[in-house]
Nucleic acid binder design. Structure first.
Lengths: 420, 420
DNA sequence: GCAATTTGTTCAGTGGTTGAATTAAATGGC
DNA sequence: GCCATTTAATTCAACCACTGAACAAATTGC
C-alpha cells in the first residue's frame, strides 16, 4: 500500500501518435537536451547517462547530434574534481537557434531575441500610441522592429526558429484577433497582415513561424522564464487597463480549449456591484481595473499608459496620499477575493502580480494576502505566496521568445532536421 | 503564415524519462490500444496502420501481444463491406483486466467493477449512516463490499488491476484523508487501515493497488466515463452537503499540485455575505449548500442524506411550493455566479450538475445559464452548456474504476508484463 | 612509475520497426 | 463456375538505434 499513484498519472499523454523507429532517437534527443537545460552546472555525458538511465554509449551518440546542430557546446574548462579522467561539461549552445518575441500593446511595441540558454540577446521597445493607428500600420511598425531583431540575431550567429506575437486581446486558433478592446481591434487577421512581410522568420520543419497569443498568457510565460528554479504552477495577473491572467500549470501555459482562459477581469467579485463594460455587474475590473483605481484615487479621467498610471499612483501612495492608499487597499481586497476563488479551484500556491500591478505590489500584496488567508480552504496547511513579477513591460515579449526556445528544447529534432 | 502552432504545443511533455529500446514496443502498444478504444466500430489492423502511420507488420505484431494479454479480442462477425478479404475487427477485451471502484460517503458505501470496455460488470451500494462509525469500522464494512466485488470479478474471468477509493474530503499525496468534514474524519490514514485487508487487489507491475481520491474528482471522471463521445473538458459540480467540483481538461482530471483543486464551495460569491463554516464570508456554500437551500425552502434542521434531501426538495418544487422554488432560484443564481468565474478563467464550454444538483437540475439550470450568459465574456461567441450528470450516486465509484482501466489503456505494458 | 578511477568511444549483438513480397479471403464480371 | 481484382494480414530480410562489455583516454595518488 506504500506509494499511491495519482489520477493525474492515469491520463498522461506520453505519446500523441505512433512511435516510429526514428522516434526513438528523436525522443532521446529531447530527453538529453532537457537534462542539459535543467541544471546550472554543466553535466557530463556520464552524469546524463546515470540520471536518465540511458547507456553512456547512447548519450554520447545523442550528444554528438546535438553538438553538430549547435544546440549544445562543450564547456572549455574542465571542472576540477577527484580522481579519474576529467568530465567534459555540456552547455546549451548560444550560437544555435533563438526565439523572436514581439508585442503590440496600447502604448508600445516591443521585440526581443532570446537564445537557447534563455539569455535575452536583443531587446527593443518603441513607445508609440497605437490607438490612432490602423492595425496594418501598427503591424508595419512592428515589422521594422522585427527586422532589426533579425539582423541582431544574424550578427550574433543565431538562427531564428520561430516568433511569438503578444496581443492584448482574445486570439483564436488561426491567429485572428477577435477582440482587443483597448487597442480598438476587432477581427484583425494578423497572420494575413504579416503575410506580406517575409522578413520575420522562415518556417522550421513545417512549423509555421509565428504564433499570435494573448499578452497575459505570454507574460505569464515570461515570469516562468525569468525564474528558472521557481514554481512551475502559478497564476500571473496582468493588471493593465483590463485585467488578464495567465495560468501556468506544471511549467506549461494553460490556454483553455480555445485559448481564452484567464479572463480574470470578469470574474464576479460582488454580483450586485457596479455595471462593467462587459454588461455584467460586479466584475473584478470594476474594482481593480486601472480606470476604477485611478478614479478612486482622485485621478478620474486621466488617460495614461498602464505603467505610467501605475507609476503615478505609486508616487502618490509613497507620499502617503490617503485617497490613493484607500484606492489601492480596495483594489487589493477585490483582487484578493477573485484570486481566492481561483486558488480554491486550482490549488495553486503562488500568485504573481504583473503588468501595472507589479509597480503597486507593495500596497496590493497585504490586502490580497489577507483575503487569501481568510478564504482559501487549504491556506492553513500551506500558505499562498503573493509576489511581484520578475519582469516588467518586456515580460510578454520575453515570454513569447522563451516559448519558442522551450519548444526547441522539447523537440530538438525539428531544428536538427531543418533544411539549412 | 498558414496554420499557427499553439503555445500549448510549445510545452508538450511527450516523454517523461529516457526512451530505452523496449520503450518502442511499450509505446506502440499504447498507441494501438488507444486507437482500438477510441471508436465504436471495431477497427481492423489495416485501418489502425493507416490511422497511426505504423506499418501493417508492426500493427499485427503489436495486436498479437494485446490479444495474448486478453486486452483485445477479435470480433467474430466480419463486418460485411466491399471487395477484398474481409477485415477482422478488433475490440477491447472483456475478460482481461478490470478496475475496482469504491466509495465511502456520509450515508452509503459503494463498490463496482468496470471492465476494459467500460461496462459496469458489478455494482453494489449499501446504505448505512457512517457518521457514528469509526473510520476503521467504516473501512471494514467497505472491505466486505470489495471482497464481494472481487469475487464477482473472478467469476467473470476478470483480473482486478487496481482500485480507487472515493472519499468526500481532502486527500493528500500519500492517501491520508486530511479532512472529511461531513464524515467527521481528520487525518485518517486510509492505506494503513486497509493494509490489514489484502483482499482488495494485488499490485500490478509495481503500481500500488489503491488510490484514494476526492469524491468530487472521481465523480467528474465518472461523467467522462459515462459519455464516451462527450466533451473532454468540463466542470463537474457535486452538490452534496458541501459543494465540490471536479475539473476535467482534455480528458484528464486536473487535480492541482496537491490534489486539492475544485473547492468550489468556498469560492466567494458575495464578499459581504453570511459567514461560512470555513470562517470566510459569502462562500458559495452559504448560498447553495444543502443546508442553506433546505433552510431557505423552509426545511431547516432536517438532517437528510444528500439525495433524499434533493428528492424531497424536487417534490416540493414539482408541487409548485413557492419557498422551494425561490430557494432553488437563489441557489442556482449563486451557483451561476461562482461557475461564471470558473468559466471565464478556464475557458470551458460545459458545466455538469452532479450529486444532489442532478436531481434539481430542472430548476437550477435556468438561473445558472442566465448568470453564465450575462457574465461569461465569450458567451456571445460560443454559449456554455449546462446539463445534469449522466450518473447518479454511483458516479464516483464508476469514475474511480474507470480511471483504473483508463490507466491500463494508457500504459498496457504494465498489465502485459505482470507476473501472472 | 604504476595502480586506481572515472570518462568517453568502439563494436558486436539484439529488439523492434520497415518495406516488399506473399498468402488469404472475399467480390464481381463473364 | 472460373478468374481477375481487391483488400487484409503475415512473412522475412534489412536496417536503425539502443545495449553491454571491452577498451582507450586522462587524471589522481601512492
Amino acid at each position: 500500500m506504500a506509494v499511491l499513484w495519482h489520477c493525474q498519472g492515469v491520463t498522461d499523454t506520453r505519446t500523441a501518435g505512433a512511435v516510429r523507429q526514428g522516434s526513438l532517437r528523436e525522443l532521446n534527443l529531447a530527453v538529453v537536451l532537457r537534462r542539459i537545460a535543467a541544471t546550472d552546472r554543466p553535466p557530463s555525458r556520464a552524469e546524463i547517462a546515470a540520471d536518465t538511465g540511458l547507456t553512456r554509449a547512447t548519450v554520447s551518440a545523442v550528444v554528438d547530434d546535438l553538438i553538430a546542430g549547435r544546440l549544445v557546446t562543450e564547456a572549455d574548462p574542465a571542472p576540477r574534481t577527484g580522481a579519474g579522467r576529467p568530465a567534459r561539461g555540456l552547455l546549451l549552445g548560444d550560437t544555435g537557434p533563438a526565439g523572436l518575441g514581439l508585442e503590440v500593446n496600447v502604448d508600445y511595441l516591443a521585440a526581443c531575441v532570446v537564445d537557447l540558454t534563455g539569455a535575452v540577446r536583443h531587446h527593443e521597445v518603441r513607445r508609440v500610441d497605437l490607438r490612432p493607428l490602423s492595425p496594418a500600420d501598427a503591424l508595419t511598425d512592428l515589422v521594422a522592429l522585427a527586422r532589426r531583431a533579425r539582423t541582431a540575431a544574424d550578427d550574433a550567429g543565431l538562427g531564428l526558429a520561430g516568433a511569438a506575437l503578444a496581443v492584448p486581446g482574445l486570439v483564436d486558433a488561426r491567429g485572428l484577433v477577435r477582440l482587443a478592446p483597448n487597442l480598438g481591434w476587432r477581427d484583425v487577421d494578423v497572420p494575413a497582415l504579416l503575410a506580406g512581410h517575409p522578413a520575420l522568420t522562415d518556417p522550421v520543419d513545417g512549423v509555421p513561424p509565428l504564433v499570435v497569443e494573448n499578452e497575459a498568457n505570454l507574460a505569464a510565460l515570461g515570469e516562468l522564464h525569468a525564474r528558472p528554479g521557481g514554481p512551475q504552477s502559478f497564476l500571473h495577473v496582468s493588471g493593465e487597463i483590463g485585467i488578464g491572467a495567465g495560468i501556468v500549470l506544471d511549467g506549461a501555459l494553460f490556454r483553455g480549449s480555445r485559448g481564452w482562459s484567464g479572463e480574470l477581469g470578469h470574474v464576479p467579485v460582488d454580483p450586485g456591484g457596479p455595471t462593467c463594460r462587459c454588461g455584467a455587474r460586479g466584475c473584478l475590473e470594476t474594482y481593480a481595473g486601472q480606470e476604477a483605481v485611478l478614479a478612486a484615487a482622485g485621478l478620474a479621467g486621466v488617460d495614461l499608459p498602464a505603467d505610467t498610471a501605475a507609476r503615478r499612483l505609486a508616487d502618490l501612495a509613497c507620499s502617503g496620499d490617503p485617497a490613493a492608499l484607500d484606492a489601492l487597499h480596495a483594489a487589493g481586497t477585490a483582487l484578493g477575493v477573485a484570486v481566492s476563488g481561483v486558488v480554491n479551484l486550482l490549488d495553486l500556491d503562488t500568485v504573481v502580480l504583473g503588468g501595472g500591478y507589479a509597480t503597486l505590489a507593495q500596497w496590493l500584496c497585504p490586502p490580497v494576502l489577507a483575503e487569501l488567508d481568510a478564504r482559501v480552504l487549504t491556506s492553513g496547511w500551506s500558505p499562498v505566496t503573493v509576489r511581484p513579477a520578475a519582469l516588467g513591460a518586456e515580460s510578454a515579449a520575453v515570454g513569447g521568445a522563451g516559448a519558442v526556445v522551450r519548444r526547441i528544447i522539447a523537440r530538438p529534432s525539428g531544428w536538427l532536421s531543418r533544411p539549412g
